[in-house]
Amino acid sequence: MRPLVDLQNVCRTFGGVITALDDVSLSVSEGETIALLGPSGSGKSTLLSLIAGFETASSGTLTVAGKSIHDWHPDEFRLRIVGFLFQQFHLLEHLSAVRNVELSLFPTCRQPRQRFLKSRQLLEDVGLGERLLVQATDLSGGERQRVAFCRSIANQPRLLLADEPTGNLDRASSQRLLSTLSDHMLRHQSTLIVATHDDDVARICSRVIRLQDGKVVDS
């Protein structure tokens, strides 16, 4: 079966001087949960950015869902193929929890009522049913990350990318988020690639890929 994500000899350099990724090759099959482990500066975030299409590789080939990343229209790619969960959550602070999730459904769902109902359901599933109308600034870190998670899966992407999702959370919130992620992966057989230096995160994944100085050292 063709892999969902396939990198061959991918390099990423900045200014021709700094090498963030050096000849990285790896494949991810549909349904797999991958943890990218490595210390800060090992290239984990860069790798995720490349797969998400936020950055372009300096060399090598990168295919996602059977097409070269360059052949995908970026808007279609981010809507249908990839969902992204950021370390800093990146919620729209002036909006409530449900509005943040609704915004991600604007491109795919025309009916405001449908958007609301779907968003509400997603938030209820992660235990935020009573916090729908609370403004993002008034949510705790864990709650914000769960809202961000709902937003990232609202359009049912085939691949979820998470960059240090527990990086800004306390232990209890981290555990809760991991539980949410785990449930979601099991239920929907989604593919997850999570960049982390947290072993607890790696434990919920089916495979660990270690990165060091931009190279894959253990796959």
Binding site: A52, D75, R78, L79, F84, H90, T108, N155
Partner: peptide, 14 residues
């Protein structure tokens, strides 16, 4: 804020 919308899948035109 606009970059977040783009990251969520909003097209540049939208």
């Amino acid at each position: 804020e606009l970059a977040i919308l783009r990251a969520m899948g909003w097209s540049a035109i939208r």
